[in-house]
Computed example of a mutant assay.
Amino acid sequence: MSDSILVVNAGSSSIKFKLFRIVGADLVPLLSGGMNGIGAAPAFTVKDGSGAVLETRRFAAGEIPDGLAAQHHLADWFTRHRAGESIVAVGHRVVHGGPDFSAPVLVDDAVLRTLETFIPLAPLHQLGNLDPIRVLRLRRPDLPQIACFDTAFHRGHPELSDRFALPRSLYDEGLRRYGFHGLSYEYVAGRLRDLSPETADGRVVVAHLGSGASLCALKEGRSEETTMGFTALDGLPMGTRCGALDPGAVLHLIEQKGMTPSEVGHMLYHESGLLGLSGLSSDVRTLLASDRAEAGMAVAFFCRRVAQAAAALAVTLGGLDAFVFTAGIGENAPEIRRRIIADLGLTGLILSNDANRSGVARLDAAGSRAQIWVIPTDEERMIARHTLRLLGQTAAGSSA
């Protein structure tokens, strides 16, 4: 039985996995799947390496009440199907590495304790990211587990990009712009280098547009600045998150409206963004299909904010050589791409409407001042690569 690496990407209401067979320095997908709707209407799906469905099952809400129950179900499934026998390491997406971790790390007791201190910095994600690590440490304490951080790719930022206009003492304590979606940006930067090395060495803005959304300015493949900051609440409006907000509005909600901090937090994370703007849905597909004025306004708001942020990042880079769309909306919503590029007309970007509708990777038309790309992201493969590399280093260290 060939060795394999399991990748776990757990969130607040879902858990995804991919199993890769190690073939020399390559990684071949074997299985993928996960559980969505945890605590509401859970659905579990497993697919083979080609994407064919092997198993699907729906649960009553009470059967899988939380993420911990979902993780135990997934572990039980691997045990029953003997799919875990070949696993030599597990890589985990962990949203926040804080000021301590700038690269993937082998998890031990001390690392886990440190990561737990970052839960307040990413309350929607961090706890869910860490729970599978705890479950596996109980079941397979011998199995190496690697934490891969969404913040790590941005850790090389200059201080100018990391700072808030707050007292320096707070920056020294760790109150700074960390940035997120780093695993996605790292993968896309690598794919762009495969597709167009000269472009990858230039000035590139990548738009990771999904239920969570952000932009990243890349220079020579490295992150220079990004729209998310101290938490994953900042920057662009998202599915249910507000994005950039006047801090005075938060003070108003607490001091004048009498809302508690937890009530404000719940609203900003769960009731804002596209859902709050439209009063209809957090899903761009639903909004595009609706004839309600509120839905149209929400889409227009989203596209304009993306364009404004992209123009600002072009200032950071001193120009723009390419604009890249990725993630669920970026990869699959031609109308959103069209509107964003139209709002970026000042930058000289020109979209080929035929290419935009056809599903090809390169979308810019003749005369465009910069290239336009769609590059599907693969955070799980990026995590598997980091896990394989760190596993090799650990093995080499043990044999030395």
Rank of each mutant, 00 (worst) to 15 (best):
L27F: 01
E220N: 15
W77E: 08
G243L: 01
S14F: 00
M259L: 13
M228F: 14
A314T: 04
G39A: 08
K219W: 06
D48K: 08
I350R: 08
A217C: 03
H386W: 05
D321F: 08
G348A: 04
G328R: 10
N332L: 05
A189Y: 03
V284S: 00
M1I: 11
R176A: 07
R191L: 00
L277S: 10
V111C: 05
P334C: 01
A314Y: 01
A217G: 02
F302I: 04
A395W: 13
G319T: 06
F149V: 07
S281Q: 08
H386V: 03
L54D: 12
M297D: 10
R193K: 12
D246L: 13
L31C: 00
D194L: 11
E331M: 09
D108G: 11
S368T: 07
G265P: 01
R134I: 12
H181G: 02
H181C: 13
R222K: 12
H181I: 12
S196H: 14
G318F: 08
G296F: 07
A217S: 10
F20P: 00
S281P: 03
A10D: 12
V206P: 01
F302R: 04
Y171N: 04
N332H: 13
A40V: 15
A289L: 07
I372N: 05
A333M: 13
C303A: 07
S102T: 15
R57N: 03
F230C: 03
H208W: 09
S352N: 13
V28K: 06
F20G: 07
E116C: 06
L313D: 07
G128D: 05
R304D: 00
P65H: 09
E380N: 04
N129W: 03
R385L: 15
A395G: 10
R155P: 03
H270W: 12
L288C: 03
E294N: 06
T231C: 07
L6I: 08
G243Y: 04
G91D: 00
F149Y: 14
G276F: 08
A207C: 14
G98Q: 07
F180R: 01
L195P: 01
D162T: 11
H181T: 07
L288F: 02
G190L: 09
L19S: 10
Q71E: 06
I64S: 03
F20T: 10
G243I: 12
R357K: 06
R168Q: 05
L160E: 11
I5Y: 02
L166V: 15
D234H: 15
L287T: 04
P123N: 13
Q145D: 02
D291M: 00
E63R: 09
H73K: 15
Q71R: 00
H266K: 11
G359N: 04
